[in-house]
C-alpha cells in the first residue's frame, strides 16, 4: 500500500499540476464573500469606516478644527461681499418727504451691506409698523438697490378725542396728530370714545348726510354703541344702534318734506327706530302752548 500521507505533494511534483480543489481556507473565504452581510460590509462599511477614521483623526486636534472653521468663515465672507451681492442705495417710492425720513430712521441700515445680511421681511415689518404707512414692499433690485415701495395711508376723517385731534384713514387707522381743525377743514369730524373703530360706518353716515350740507358739524359716538349726528344750532339726531344709515336717510327724507330740521327742534330721537320722537326747544314749546290756548279760547 502506498503511503497515505504526503501523497498529494508527491503527485503534484510528479504531474506539475496544481490540485483543482480549493483549500479549506479558500473555500471558507469564498463562502464568506458570498454572504450578503459581509459583502455589503466590505463594499460599503469598509470604505465608510476608513473615511470616518481618517476624518476623525484629522479633526482630533483643536488647532485643525479651528483652522477649518476659520477657512470656512473666510470663504463665506469673501463670497458674500462680492460686488454682485452688495446693496449700496436704498430707494423709497410712494412716500412723502417726512415718511421717507422716518423709514430711513427706523430701518437704520448703514449701507453698503451684503444682501445676505439683509433680512427683508424684518425690514418690511419695521416699515409697515410706521403709522402713516399702509403697505410696503421691500426687494433688492439688480444694481445693488434696496427698493422700498410704500403706499401711505390717506387721511379720511378727523377724530376729536380727549387727547386732541387725530387724522384717521378710512379704516380708522391712526395716520397723524392734527394740531388744529382748520388744517383739514374738508375732512369730516367724528368724536367720542371708540369712534375710530367704526370709521367705516362713520364714513357711510357722512355720505348719507350729504344733503344736510353745511349744517352738519360732525358725528359723535355715544357710549361706544351708537351715533349722534350733530348739526349747527345745537341740533342732534340720535341714531339707533341697528342700521343707523337707514335711519338717518329717513330723517333727512322727512326733513325735506316737512322742513323738520329747519324748525326750532333740539333733538330728533330715533333710538327706537319705529317711533320718531322730537324734542323742541323751550321757547318753541311755550309758543306752541300759547297758540293752543289762543285757539281754545277763541272757540
Amino acid at each position: 500500500m502506498r503511503a497515505l500521507t504526503s501523497r498529494m505533494s508527491r503527485n503534484r511534483a510528479a504531474e506539475g499540476k496544481a490540485d483543482p480543489a480549493p483549500s479549506r481556507l479558500k473555500y471558507r473565504i469564498q463562502r464568506w464573500m458570498l454572504t450578503p452581510g459581509i459583502r455589503t460590509g466590505l463594499r460599503v462599511g469598509l470604505p465608510l469606516g476608513v473615511i470616518l477614521i481618517a476624518a476623525g483623526s484629522y479633526l482630533a486636534s483643536e488647532a485643525r478644527r479651528d483652522h477649518l472653521v476659520a477657512l470656512y468663515n473666510e470663504a463665506r465672507a469673501s463670497f458674500e461681499t462680492r460686488p454682485e451681492f452688495m446693496v449700496n442705495v436704498m430707494a423709497i417710492d410712494g412716500a412723502g418727504e417726512s415718511v421717507a425720513t422716518d423709514i430711513r430712521e427706523v430701518t437704520s441700515l448703514d449701507l453698503p451691506l451684503s444682501s445676505f445680511d439683509l433680512d427683508l421681511p424684518a425690514i418690511r415689518d419695521l416699515i409697515v409698523g410706521l403709522d402713516p404707512v399702509k403697505t410696503a414692499a421691500v426687494r433688492i433690485r439688480p444694481g445693488g438697490i434696496l427698493q422700498v415701495d410704500v403706499v401711505e395711508r390717506e387721511p379720511a376723517i378727523v377724530w376729536r378725542s380727549r387727547d386732541g385731534l387725530a387724522l384717521l384713514d378710512e379704516t380708522g387707522a391712526f395716520v397723524a396728530e392734527l394740531g388744529q381743525r382748520s388744517l383739514h377743514p374738508e375732512l369730516p369730524l367724528i368724536a367720542g370714545r371708540g369712534a375710530d373703530k367704526r370709521a367705516a360706518e362713520a364714513l357711510r353716515l357722512f355720505a348719507a348726510a350729504r344733503p344736510l350740507g353745511d349744517r352738519l358739524r360732525g358725528i359723535v359716538r355715544i357710549g361706544e354703541r351708537r351715533w349722534d349726528v350733530v348739526l349747527d344750532r345745537g341740533q342732534r339726531i340720535q341714531l339707533p344702534v341697528e342700521r343707523p344709515v337707514a335711519a338717518l336717510e329717513r330723517v333727512i327724507a322727512v326733513s325735506e318734506v316737512k322742513d323738520l330740521l329747519e324748525r326750532d327742534v333740539a333733538v330728533v330721537d330715533l333710538r327706537l327706530p319705529a317711533r320718531l320722537t322730537v324734542r323742541m326747544n323751550a321757547p318753541a314749546v311755550e309758543d306752541w302752548w300759547r297758540i293752543r290756548q289762543l285757539n281754545e279760547s277763541s272757540y
Binding site: D19, P20, A21, P22, R24, K26, Y27, Q30, L34, P36
Partner: peptide, 18 residues
C-alpha cells in the same frame, strides 16, 4: 471532500450566492 468543495465552490461562484 475536496471534490465536493471544488464542485460547490464553482457552482456558488456561478450562482453568486452562498
Amino acid at each position: 471532500e475536496r471534490a465536493i468543495r471544488t464542485a460547490v465552490q464553482a457552482a456558488q461562484k456561478m450562482a453568486e450566492v452562498r
